[in-house]
Computed example of a mutant assay.
Amino acid sequence: MDKSQSQDTECPAEAMLTDGSSTKELPFMIMFIKYLLFALLVIFMVCAAAYSISSRRTADPLIQGTRRSIMNMLLGGMLVTLSLMSMFIFRGSTLNVVIEAAFLLLGLFNIFSGLRSFSYYSRMRSGS
């Protein structure tokens, strides 16, 4: 058996990965998603802190409630982003999956309750 035949039959999985298909771009896409999620996490954190500070400095309770509901939605987005980041970073042990699911559900609940309170305060501000 010559050298070229032994390379072809040694590992067919390597041949599938190096055949020029789009599987080479997969690690790049995963890294891109990780960095995108990290950037979203930082944006959500900074915006939530800004809305928290601005809601405490205003005197009008309707504006306060509106800003706190926006802050609640941003914190929910932060929890959802954190759970998605942990899905990409850690491998799926049972404890990790349970914690990721808890963060995801808690984040979705925060987004939902923030939307509800935002609609309540916006109706109160419009007077209807």
Rank of each mutant, 00 (worst) to 15 (best):
Met1Trp: 07
Gln5Met: 11
Gln7Glu: 14
Asp8His: 11
Glu10Val: 10
Glu10Thr: 10
Cys11Lys: 01
Ala15Gly: 13
Met16Tyr: 11
Asp19Phe: 06
Gly20Glu: 07
Ser21Tyr: 04
Ser22Cys: 11
Leu26Ser: 09
Leu26Ala: 12
Leu26Tyr: 13
Leu26Glu: 10
Pro27Gly: 10
Met31Glu: 12
Met31Tyr: 08
Ile33Pro: 01
Leu36Arg: 08
Leu37Met: 14
Leu40Phe: 14
Leu40Ser: 13
Phe44His: 15
Cys47Pro: 05
Cys47Leu: 13
Cys47Val: 07
Ala48Thr: 09
Tyr51Ala: 02
Ile53Asn: 10
Ser55Phe: 13
Ser55Cys: 12
Ser55Pro: 10
Thr58Trp: 03
Leu62Gly: 01
Leu62Cys: 02
Ile63Arg: 06
Gln64Val: 05
Thr66His: 04
Thr66Lys: 05
Ser69Tyr: 04
Ile70Arg: 00
Leu75Lys: 00
Leu75Thr: 04
Leu75Ile: 05
Leu75Glu: 00
Met78Lys: 03
Leu79Arg: 00
Val80Arg: 01
Leu82Glu: 04
Ser83Val: 02
Leu84Cys: 13
Leu84Glu: 07
Met87Arg: 14
Phe88Thr: 13
Phe90Leu: 15
Gly92Cys: 12
Ser93Thr: 15
Thr94Met: 11
Leu95His: 03
Leu95Arg: 01
Asn96Asp: 06
Val97Met: 02
Val97Pro: 00
Val98Ile: 12
Val98Thr: 06
Ala102Cys: 02
Phe103Ser: 03
Leu104Pro: 00
Leu104Arg: 07
Leu105Lys: 00
Leu106Phe: 01
Leu106Ile: 01
Phe109Tyr: 13
Asn110Cys: 14
Ile111Val: 15
Leu115Gln: 07
Leu115Lys: 06
Arg116His: 10
Ser117Met: 13
Phe118Arg: 07
Ser119Met: 09
Ser119His: 08
Tyr120His: 11
Met124Thr: 08
Arg125Gly: 08
Ser126Arg: 05
Gly127Phe: 02
Gly127Leu: 01
Gly127Asp: 03
Ser128Pro: 03
Ser128Tyr: 10
